[in-house]
Measured scan of single mutants.
Amino acid sequence: MSGIALSRLAQERKAWRKDHPFGFVAVPTKNPDGTMNLMNWECAIPGKKGTPWEGGLFKLRMLFKDDYPSSPPKCKFEPPLFHPNVYPSGTVCLSILEEDKDWRPAITIKQILLGIQELLNEPNIQDPAQAEAYTIYCQNRVEYEKRVRAQAKKFAPS
């Protein structure tokens, strides 16, 4: 494992614990031996107030490669969400998460999670990743928002 990646992720964890947006979660997972795995984080993004996503808490896994922060983490909703920019596998399609697009090593975990929260309610229809959600979003916004509200209710924190 890269010392650069681990040191950056340790800084990220410290900064997150000191200050993070209300309702968001970002925690490194534990290895079988109980030690912390900084390369694999369990996160959760709350649906934004005043949107059909409100009330939901959407679980996301963030996986970092050894060359982080040169390369972005892979962000994957578990379980996958109904959304035009979420692949059926759950992987998020967002330009700041793509090395050859808008990724920059200075982007923080907090910025990534806030960017994904923004994307939930403002899909990028130029870059669809899920045919069904994309089609319904474009053709029947009322039905799309109904499905999103049902999903938010399903993923409401207990």
Results as ranks from 00 to 15, higher is better:
M1T: 00
S2Y: 12
G3S: 04
L6M: 15
R8Q: 06
R8V: 14
R8N: 09
L9R: 01
A10C: 00
Q11C: 14
E12A: 01
E12N: 07
E12V: 04
R13Q: 07
R13T: 01
K14S: 05
K14L: 09
A15D: 15
W16L: 05
R17M: 03
K18M: 07
K18V: 13
K18I: 05
D19C: 03
D19A: 12
D19S: 04
H20C: 05
H20W: 01
F22Y: 10
G23Q: 00
G23A: 07
G23H: 06
F24L: 04
F24N: 05
V25M: 10
V25R: 13
A26H: 00
A26D: 04
V27R: 14
V27N: 08
V27P: 08
P28E: 03
P28I: 02
T29C: 13
K30G: 09
K30H: 09
K30S: 11
N31G: 07
P32A: 13
D33G: 03
D33K: 02
D33P: 02
G34E: 09
G34T: 04
G34W: 07
G34Q: 13
G34R: 09
G34N: 07
T35P: 05
M36A: 03
M36L: 14
M36W: 00
M36N: 00
N37W: 09
N40P: 06
N40S: 14
W41K: 06
C43I: 02
C43N: 11
C43P: 08
C43F: 06
C43R: 00
A44F: 02
I45F: 07
I45M: 13
P46W: 02
P46H: 07
P46Q: 04
P46I: 09
G47R: 01
G47W: 08
K49D: 09
K49E: 14
T51V: 02
P52C: 10
P52Y: 11
W53T: 01
E54R: 06
E54C: 03
G55N: 09
G55L: 10
G56E: 02
L57M: 09
L57E: 12
F58I: 05
F58S: 03
K59Y: 10
K59W: 15
M62W: 01
L63P: 01
K65S: 13
D66Q: 11
Y68V: 04
P69F: 05
S70C: 13
S71E: 15
S71Q: 12
S71V: 05
S71W: 14
S71N: 10
P72V: 05
P72M: 00
P73C: 10
P73I: 08
P73K: 03
K74L: 15
K74P: 08
K74C: 15
C75D: 04
C75S: 12
K76H: 15
K76C: 11
F77M: 05
F77T: 06
F77H: 01
P79Y: 15
P79S: 14
P80Q: 09
P80M: 13
P80C: 06
P80K: 10
H83M: 02
H83Q: 03
P84G: 03
P84I: 14
N85M: 10
V86I: 08
P88V: 08
P88Y: 07
S89T: 12
S89R: 05
S89K: 11
T91M: 10
V92N: 00
V92W: 04
L94M: 04
L94V: 15
L94K: 01
S95V: 03
S95C: 06
I96L: 11
I96V: 14
L97N: 01
E98F: 08
E99W: 08
E99D: 15
K101P: 08
K101T: 13
K101N: 15
D102W: 10
D102G: 15
W103R: 00
W103I: 03
P105V: 08
P105L: 03
A106V: 12
I107L: 14
I107N: 14
I107H: 11
T108S: 14
K110D: 07
K110E: 07
K110Y: 05
Q111C: 15
Q111M: 13
L113G: 04
L113M: 11
L114A: 12
L114I: 11
L114D: 09
L114Q: 12
L114V: 15
G115I: 01
I116S: 11
I116K: 00
I116L: 15
E118Y: 11
L119D: 04
L119P: 01
L120D: 00
L120A: 06
L120H: 00
N121R: 11
N121G: 08
P123L: 01
N124K: 01
Q126I: 12
Q126T: 14
Q126V: 14
Q126N: 10
D127H: 03
D127P: 00
D127E: 11
D127Q: 00
D127L: 01
P128A: 13
A129V: 00
A129H: 04
Q130T: 09
Q130L: 12
A131C: 13
A133S: 11
A133F: 06
Y134S: 11
Y134W: 07
Y134E: 06
T135P: 05
T135E: 11
T135Y: 08
T135C: 15
T135S: 11
Y137A: 01
C138F: 08
Q139D: 13
Q139G: 07
N140T: 02
N140M: 05
N140D: 14
N140H: 09
R141H: 13
R141F: 12
V142A: 11
E143Q: 11
E143R: 06
E143F: 07
E143N: 12
Y144S: 00
Y144W: 06
Y144L: 02
E145L: 14
K146M: 14
R147V: 11
V148Q: 02
Q151V: 02
A152V: 04
A152I: 04
K153V: 03
K154G: 03
K154Y: 09
K154M: 09
K154N: 09
F155R: 04
F155Q: 14
F155A: 07
A156V: 08
A156F: 11
A156L: 07
P157D: 10
P157E: 06
S158I: 12
S158G: 06
